[in-house]
Every structure is written in C-alpha cells, then in structure tokens.
C-alpha cells in the first residue's frame, strides 16, 4: 500500500473526484441551511468548510427501506457502487461502530452489508472544527487514521492524498498524472494543520472527562435523580437520535404503498426517546420498559458512554456535536455527562 502521501493541486480536485468509482458521487455542498451531501454537477465540494450537518448513516441505513415482501422474491438488494467524499474521522468511526452492530453479531444484516460494500469512502482532515465539535474529549482526533479508501489532508495549495485500501490505491494509479511527490515542507504543513486542529478543539471544547472515567462514574445510574432536570428540557422530538451517526434503532412496518392488498416490510428509523419506543401489547400499567422520559434519556446517554464499551469496545459518542445542534431543548450531551457524572 502506498502510505506516503502524494500531492494533488486544488485545481485537480475535480479530476480526481471524477475518477472515483461508482455511478454517483456524494460530496459536501455549502447551502444556506448548512453543509450537506449532494451530487453537484460542476461546483467543487466544500472540503475546507464545516462538516456536513447530516451524519453518513443514511447512506448505509436509509431512514426508510424495503426489506421484504409478502411473498416476494428471495433476491437480496443490489446497490450500485457510489463514492462518498468529505467524511470526517468521526464519520469513519461511526461506520466502524455500525459495522459492529450490523455485521459483527450472530447474523449479518444483508441490506447494511450491501450498502457498505457499494461505498468508496474519501475522508478529509477537519479544518476548522465547529463550535459543537468535541471529538478530542471522547478520545478521538480530527483526522483519520484508517477506515477510508482515500484520505485528503488540506494544505495551502491543494491536498496530501493517501490510499488506505487497494481500491484507493487503484484510483491513485489511474490518476497518477495528477499527483506529484509531496515534499517535506508539505508533509510538515499537513502535520502542523493536524496539531493545530487538535489544539483548537481541546481549548474550544467544554471539557468532558475521559470516556472510560465517565463510564465508571455513570454506570448503573439510570434511576438516579440527577437525570431529572435534563428530562425537563427534553421535548421528546427525537432529533438527536435522527442526526446521531451511531444511533441505529429501527422499527419494521407493513406498507401497501406498492399495490392494494400487496404488502411489503419497511424498515424505518426509531428513537429510544419516544414514549412509544419498545411498546408492548396488552393493557397493563407498564407497556414499555421505560415509561418515564427521565429513564429513556438516561438510557440513551448510558448506551453511548457506558454500554457501547461493553458491546463494541468503543465509545458510542464520537463527539461530532450534531445532537447539540439539533436539540430543540438546548441540551448538550457533554453537559449532561458532566452534570450527572459530578453528582455521583
């Protein structure tokens, strides 16, 4: 594998992108509402701006997907190859997390697997971080150290490009004419950018203790009263779970959209904060395992900061800050973790 970065001029970025595999290429585009993924026809992607508002999970776990039919074919989904440009390290880590969930258990999810296999991933080092970013507080860094096909490190006049897989290497071979040797000054510039981003994140991010310490402090606290004030602010909208790159709960409904009397099974996103989550049949007094919002909110935070370590050996919160931005009740998950942790 060619692990020494090559240099790509800014003007040649579009040429590199057009050499990426797949029929579609999703790239971050700056819009009035924020940066988001799209398939621009001409404009170059926004790789030096803010990270996309949306997580990457819809590319692998669509918010609504047909997973079966009564009594349909046994064919598994065929997903056309596509490229995804502009992922940040937190996005790559979220894919690693979802791989544990959907591919690492007793059975593989064929739909997730198909989307995943079709994707070519191009990551980019963060510059600059957003106000809500705090990846360094949960053990992350604002640049990738794996999980990509290609990674781009922005420097003054272009990018340092490195391949992480054979597929990425093939693209670099096919675009060899665009690439030049990255001189020592450029490599140093890339390293300096990374160090500067870590530095600015560490000073900007409101401090959160080490996730392992948080896990120990919060463990077994679901019933603790210190969750109560946060439940008071939560309006149960589910925005945090929708934008969270690692939230993956789903619900399966029957739909007859296709034809009257002919039913398909549709998998849709679910949210553990909603009162109806995990509702069971019957007329008892306790129809869900967590009838109180306080314990649902606690469970979501504890899943990220405590249970994920036991399940997958990694923190379920990657510090992307999207839930902070989306929350209608102005709840910042860092503040919740700090406050509940301090009360224990």
């Amino acid at each position: 594998m060619h692990r020494t970065p090559r240099f790509l001029r800014e003007d040649d970025l579009s040429a590199l992108i057009s050499a990426l595999p797949g029929t579609r290429c999703y790239q971050p585009i700056e819009k009035p509402t924020g940066t988001d993924y799209g398939t621009p026809s001409s404009s170059p992607p926004s790789l030096r701006g803010k990270r996309p508002t949306s997580p990457t999970k819809p590319f692998f776990l669509p918010s609504r997907e047909r997973v079966a039919a009564f009594w349909g074919s046994r064919d598994l989904p065929e997903i056309e190859p596509f490229s995804l440009v502009g992922l940040r390290n937190c996005d790559l880590l979220s894919i690693r997390y979802l791989d544990h969930v959907f591919l690492g258990g007793v059975c593989e999810d064929p739909f997730y697997k198909a989307h995943r296999a079709a994707a070519f991933l191009v990551s980019v080092d963060c510059s600059p971080p957003q106000e809500s970013c705090f990846c360094t507080a949960v053990g992350g860094v604002p640049y990738a150290d794996g999980g990509y096909d290609l990674n781009l490190t922005p420097v003054a006049e272009g990018y340092l490009v490195v391949a992480g897989t054979g597929a990425g290497e093939s693209v670099l071979l096919a675009t060899a004419a665009l690439l030049t040797e990255a001189k020592a000054e450029l490599l140093a510039e890339g390293e300096e950018l990374r160090a500067r981003m870590v530095e600015s994140l560490s000073t900007a991010a409101r401090s959160t203790p080490d996730p392992q310490v948080v896990a120990e402090r919060l463990g077994g606290s679901e019933a603790h009263a210190s969750w109560e004030p946060w439940a008071g602010k939560c309006v149960e909208c589910g925005a945090c779970t929708a934008v969270c790159p690692t939230c993956h709960c789903y619900y399966i409904i029957d739909s007859n959209d296709a034809a009257p009397g002919s039913y398909t099974k549709i998998r849709t996103w679910d949210s553990c904060l909603l009162a109806e989550y995990a509702r069971m049949a019957g007329m008892g007094a306790k129809l869900t395992p967590r009838p109180r919002l306080r314990s649902r909110l606690a469970n979501r935070v504890l899943h990220k900061y405590v249970y994920s370590f036991a399940q997958y050996g990694m923190c379920g919160c990657l510090g992307c800050g999207r839930c902070d931005e989306a929350c209608l009740g102005a709840i910042a998950i860092r503040d919740v973790v700090n406050a509940v942790g301090a009360s224990r």
């Binding site: 079966a68 046994r74 059975c107 739909f111 099974k265 998998r267």
Partner: peptide, 12 residues
C-alpha cells in the same frame, strides 16, 4: 439457520 434475508417471512 436464518434465511439470507432475516426480514423475509416464511409463508405458513
């Protein structure tokens, strides 16, 4: 054993 697609119902 599960079907390759675990979401697909077996007719009964």
């Amino acid at each position: 054993t599960l079907r390759a697609n675990p979401y697909e119902p077996i007719a009964a």
